[in-house]
């Protein structure tokens, strides 16, 4: 299984409280079929607690689950940017907002 981590330089998710549209994160990407930077959905694995809520309620079933329970974007083309995952995630760990 491939694990991605996202983290800013100083170990925090955000670099600047006012950087509203963009936040700088380090994406250590290994062999996932999807280019994470171009992915319609971002998952902050640092904060995700693998509860499965985003996967369960995504209306288009575009998210899949790794064996450890963490979500990943299985079918990027299916995402309709409804933001259901955003709203229901208890951990502020995923965004499917349109950019």
């Amino acid at each position: 299984m491939v694990k991605k981590t996202s983290k800013s330089k100083d170990g925090q998710i955000l670099t600047d409280g006012d950087a509203l549209e963009l936040m700088e994160v380090e994406i250590t990407e290994e062999k996932e079929n999807i280019d994470y930077k171009k992915s319609p959905v971002y998952i902050y694995y640092e904060w995700c607690k693998k509860c499965g809520i985003c996967v369960a309620f995504c209306p288009t079933k575009c998210l899949g689950r790794h064996p450890d329970g963490s979500p990943f974007v299985e079918f990027p083309e299916k995402c309709i940017h409804c933001e259901t995952c955003d709203r229901l995630c208890p951990d502020f760990a995923i965004t499917g907002a349109k950019r």
Binding site: K9, Q12, I13, L20, K37, K49, C51
Partner: peptide
Amino acid sequence: MANIPQKVVHKYLRHNKKFPHVWCPG
């Protein structure tokens, strides 16, 4: 390093505090 979009909610969070937060999964 890459810039990725941030949700509006993060503007109101004390992100320098202990995140992930203390609540259980789900």
